[in-house]
Design a binder for these strands. Structure first.
Lengths: 245, 245
DNA sequence: TACAATTAGTGTATAATCAACACTAACAGA
DNA sequence: TCTGTTAGTGTTGATTATACACTAATTGTA
C-alpha cells in the first residue's frame, strides 16, 4: 500500500473527496424507521438523502460518523458500526466522492431531531416506505444497511440497541419478526431468550388488555459478551454476503 | 451525505489521499499464506507491507483493488471482497491517507509474482509467521482479514476459492482446520460436505501411500448459490463482529 | 358475578441435527 | 501375506429445533 512512494507528491496527486454517510435506524411503534434529510441544494435538490458530510482532516472516520449522528439526532453513545465504502466514480455529479457508510441504532426513546443549515427537513421514515428516489446511491446504501442489520440480528444481540431501557419479550420478538421478515414461534422464542441469559427481570409490569406483561432489561454486566443470544443459526444470503461480510 | 453543499468548493476543501490495500491469501502446501511486498522508500523503508496504491480518479474502488492484485500476482478473476476502510488521521506519517482494504483469495496453482518499481521484494508468508512489524497499520488490517476469512468460512463456500480445480475432501478439511484453528472430525466432515451437494465427483484419483484419493470439483452450475455449505453453525466472536460484520 | 375475550407465558412430543468414535476399504512395501 | 498408511462409511446417544397444545392473569360485559 501507500505505493508510488518514489513518485509521491501530495500537492500534485489528484484527490477524491471523502464523506461519511450514516444510516440511522430506530423503532417507531414497533416498526423499523430510518432517518433521512431533505436536500436544499443541487444536486438532488429536494430529494431525501442519508445524513452525512465531509470528514475533517484530523478526525477519524468513526468520529466523523458520530459527529454527523449527533448533529442530526442529538444522541451520543449509541451503537455505530462501519458498513461499507462506496466509491463509484460517478456517484456524485460534482466530483469524485468516496463515501464511508456507517450504520447506527438509536433507542426509540432517545430521538431528538435537529434541522441543519443545509437541509430543509429531517424525518423518520419506515424502512419499507422511503420517499424514492433517494439522492446519490443512497438507496443502495440503505439496502445494504438493512441486510447487514438483518444478518447481524441472527447472531448478535443488536436488537436490544433499538429497544428502550425496559421492554417485554414479545416486543423483542416483534423486532425480530420485523427485521427478519418472518413469523417466529412465541413459545420457542420465550425459551431461547430465557435460556440465553441475556435478559434480567425487572419488577415492572405493564398493564393493558389481557394478562399484564412482565418487563425485562438487557444485562449489561456481562463483560464484553455482546454476542450471546442468537435467534437461529441459519443465515440468509444477503448483499453483504456476496461482496462483504 | 454530501452536505455542506451550500459552502462546498472543491478547490478549497482539503482532501485526504485514498488508497486501496489488498490482503491476498493463498494456500501453500496446506498452509494459509499472505502476500507482502517490501518497501523501498520512506516511511517504513525495508518493512513488509500489504500491496496497494492510490486510486485513480476514474476507476471504482474494486477496479483499483483488482488492478493492484493483477500488478502483484498476475491473476484476474479471483475472489475479491471489500474488507473495511481504515482512516485514522495518523496512520500514515506523510499525510492523511484513507485506505479501503480488500481481501482476495487466489487458488494455489495460479500464482505468478511480480516485483514492481516501488518494492524491492514480493513474497508469500505464512499468516502465522509474518515479518513484524508490518508497515503502517497493516498488521491490524491483516488481523481483520483473517478473522473475516475465518467467519465467512463457516457459512460460505469461500474455502473452495483457495483450492485448485480438483482436490480431495481431506484437503478441504485441512483448509477448514487451518483457518478455524481446530480439529474437525473426519467422518462428520465427509458426511456434511457430501450431503451439501456442493461438490461433484471427478473420475480422477490421486495415488500415493495408502488408499488412492478420489478427487472432486466444486459445482459451479448452481445459479448463484455461493452459500450452501456451512461447516458449523456457531460463530466466533471476531474483531469484525465488534465493529463491523 | 360469571364468563368471554384477550394477551402472556409454559410444557411436551417428535423430528432433525450434531459429535464421537468404531469400523471397513484400498493401496504400497517388506 | 502381512503391516502400515491413508481413504472413506456406519452407528449410536445426546442435543437442539419445531410445532402446537396447554395454562395464567387480567379487562370488559352480559
Amino acid at each position: 500500500m501507500e505505493e508510488s512512494a518514489a513518485t509521491y507528491d501530495p500537492s500534485r496527486y489528484q484527490r477524491p473527496s471523502v464523506t461519511v454517510d450514516v444510516v440511522i435506524f430506530t423503532l417507531h411503534n414497533r416498526e423499523l424507521h430510518v432517518l433521512l434529510v431533505q436536500r436544499r441544494h443541487w444536486p438532488f435538490e429536494g430529494c431525501w438523502a442519508l445524513p452525512g458530510g465531509f470528514i475533517e482532516m484530523d478526525e477519524s472516520l468513526e468520529a466523523a460518523a458520530r459527529r454527523e449522528l449527533e448533529e442530526e439526532t442529538g444522541v451520543r453513545d449509541v451503537y455505530l458500526e462501519q458498513l461499507y465504502t462506496f466509491g463509484d466514480p460517478d456517484r456524485d455529479p460534482r466530483t469524485r466522492v468516496i463515501s464511508v457508510a456507517y450504520f447506527a441504532l438509536v433507542q426509540s426513546d432517545r430521538q431528538v431531531l435537529r434541522t441543519s443549515d443545509e437541509t430543509s427537513d429531517v424525518r423518520w421514515f419506515p424502512v419499507q416506505d422511503v420517499p424514492l428516489p433517494l439522492a446519490f446511491d443512497h438507496q443502495r446504501i440503505l439496502t445494504r444497511a438493512v441486510s447487514r442489520l438483518r444478518s447481524k440480528l441472527e447472531y448478535t444481540t443488536l436488537a436490544f440497541q433499538l429497544l428502550p431501557e425496559v421492554f417485554s419479550i414479545l416486543e423483542l420478538k416483534d423486532i425480530y419478526q420485523q427485521i427478519l421478515g418472518e413469523e417466529l414461534d412465541k413459545g420457542n422464542f420465550y425459551r431461547k431468550i430465557k435460556e440465553s441469559g441475556v435478559l434480567e427481570e425487572t419488577s415492572l409490569v405493564r398493564e393493558g388488555r389481557g394478562r399484564p406483561t412482565r418487563l425485562w432489561r438487557f444485562k449489561r454486566d456481562r463483560g464484553d459478551k455482546q454476542f450471546v443470544f442468537r435467534w437461529r443459526e441459519d443465515r440468509a444470503t444477503d448483499e453483504s454476503r456476496k461482496g462483504d461480510a
